[in-house]
Design a protein around this nucleic acid. Structure first.
Lengths: 211, 211, 211, 211
DNA sequence: TATGAATGAGCTTTCATTCAT
DNA sequence: GATGAATGAAAGCTCATTCAT
């Protein structure tokens, strides 16, 4: 009982993508707080009801927006060094740390904010790969470490799993407390040479020399 | 025509504490999801409106409940080895890992679920100490490592900050992905000897012997 | 986040009854059309959300309003002649017809309008007696006829069930077509001596004398 | 970039008829509940908007569908005995009863469900003849009874109007309560020899012999 | 003429908060 | 202090209707 305006010109882009992009923007900006269908519609400059012409419900749209957010952040980051043996081990690991920091800085707020909405996370999980051996970044780092170990650039006794868990975990650890403190993501500062110190510690260990 | 009942059997306990305890119970059980004022009142077996006689608003009550939850979990865990020099370093670090896992398993769901409610987190932050050097557990571990280093049980070149970040971070890393996957906290399994492998890796490093 | 006014003074009457009465008024006036929770709240002069403090949902309230409507109509009608043997049979049957007409005139619009809302009707059915042998009026008439038959004031071969069905049905038949025609209930006219003709026909039958 | 398909295989049938048929199908299947424009379009396998190229609005389409439904049910039933004097009176009346039961079983749910939509019913009424002397079936039965009366096969004092009202009404009475109870039309059972008992009662009356 | 994406008022329902008692 | 009924904004979602293509 109320149509009329054809509304905002969106130039060829399908509205579903436009809506996902709008939701993604809100997710990136404010996390899951205030992520209502009305807010999304306003951000997308479309009518309140449109979303239901393209998605089953709010959950589906937000799950897609979350995926888009993760992908877009991943695309914005330099590629990870996956080829073992090239470059120095330290440089490569520092790249992983930098990647992890940037990635988590961008996506942790969204994920954490959605912990109270398990339905959305479940939808998101359905969209993704099986992921049963941990999140993609940790899996990639584990694989990389294993490859380096095979080349002899890592101690044969090293535990790639544990090392990857520590390194990726350290990236979380730098960000989570700020999140839990209410600090806006933009204001989180990385201590100088965080990556360098982390990698050094991980490579050489902290035990005293003769042990 | 309706008031004056002391309501539930609370035996002299101030009502504010009773309310905080009720909110804490809900927080521990279901995280932040469904944590409504009505649900808290029902859990506390008191009237809907009481909370406003004791707290400024819902945010304040939940912030206090969050603090109570953290404290109660901390109290339930064995004390951390803070005296450097006693016991073996490895054992002590394994204690920290065990502590961190148990602590995060219990409190991460609540914290993560509240990321979408910055007002509550801000209130919670005001309740705590300045804590600007990271969360308490990491600070404690850093202090412990520094003390061991002073005793010569750690390499003089070790970076206690980085090591603490990695160790505490690894505990997060084990739990967060499950949270983001929607797994109920109760079902999260710790891999066998997680602590041992972590500590070994951290102590000895992963670089090949001769480096 | 928005209380303030104590609103309309309702002098002791519980709000649940007030809401049921408001819904009943709308039901009586317009049938089920436009019977929204907002319309009910406006009719009751209360806030939109109140109803959920007293009823599980809209269905429950309307089911109760429907019952209240039926009861209130029943109360407004003269009592049915249930004592067989007193008065003349014809007079008594005419009373039934008059009763049926008035009753159906008042309640058929509401019932018919709710046929498209089976959930409400189901809730209503749960509120009522088992009613498995037809609606109360028909049951009462059947019982009355049976009693008269036992007294010999009815042919021993008469079929009270069939007769009751015809008589009550005739009352429906007078009203339904108007309902289906969109005639407002108020404008439905009963032909002169409808009851008398009906009763005469039923008593004497339409077969020619000698058969 | 999207139009021009003739859509479903409709083989020359005008689209308006196709739409009416689709709406009729839904009406027959589920009554008026869930009878949305989209549901009709999906049933017809055409675009959502087409209906507005052929009908003023939803009301008009459904009114036409209702008429189509009534006609299609009528066509599916054996013809009524309209020729007075042929066959036995009882058989003929039993035919009317059977016809009325089958007819009402099929169309009452639709009509009743639309009572809350007076606009549709009004549109439907406009489509039909003046019909001011009651619905077609009752009119036909009245006419038939009158003809039989003229032939002397009915008492000269019988009131064909009242008799027709009772008979047709009895058919309503058997079905309506189930509708109001939420019983799906398919499950409504007719008591054994309902027609026979009804006709006998109507023919012979229920008064005791000597009266 | 057919399409179907877009519109937006309106629906039911939830919930933090107030206040007369 | 305690009660809990009442408030009303705002949430997620539906659906008749329009109109550029």
């Amino acid at each position: 009982m109320t149509p009329r305006k054809p509304a905002a010109a969106r130039e060829g882009e399908p509205l579903s993508a436009h809506l996902v992009a709008a939701a993604e923007r809100l997710l990136a900006r404010h996390g899951a707080a205030g992520l209502t269908v009305r807010a999304i519609a306003r951000e997308a400059q479309v009518a309140d009801g449109v979303l239901y012409n393209h998605f089953a419900d709010k959950e589906e749209l937000i799950a897609l927006a979350l995926r888009a957010h993760v992908r877009s952040v991943e695309r914005s980051l330099p590629p990870l060094p996956t080829a073992a043996g090239s470059g120095t081990l330290e440089d490569n690991l520092r790249s992983y740390v930098g990647y992890g920091l940037a990635l988590h800085l961008a996506i942790l707020p969204a994920f954490a904010g959605l912990v109270a909405h398990p339905k959305i996370l479940h939808r998101f999980a359905e969209l993704s790969m099986p992921v049963e051996q941990g999140p993609p970044l940790r899996a990639a780092l584990t694989a990389y470490l294993r490859a380096e170990q095979a080349l002899g650039r890592l101690s044969p006794e090293a535990d790639p799993d544990a090392a990857a868990t520590m390194i990726v975990g350290a990236c979380h650890e730098l960000i989570l407390p700020h999140l839990f403190h209410g600090t806006p993501a933009a204001e989180i500062a990385v201590p100088p040479d965080f990556a360098g110190k982390l990698v050094a510690t991980c490579l050489r260990g902290i035990a005293p020399p003769g042990v």
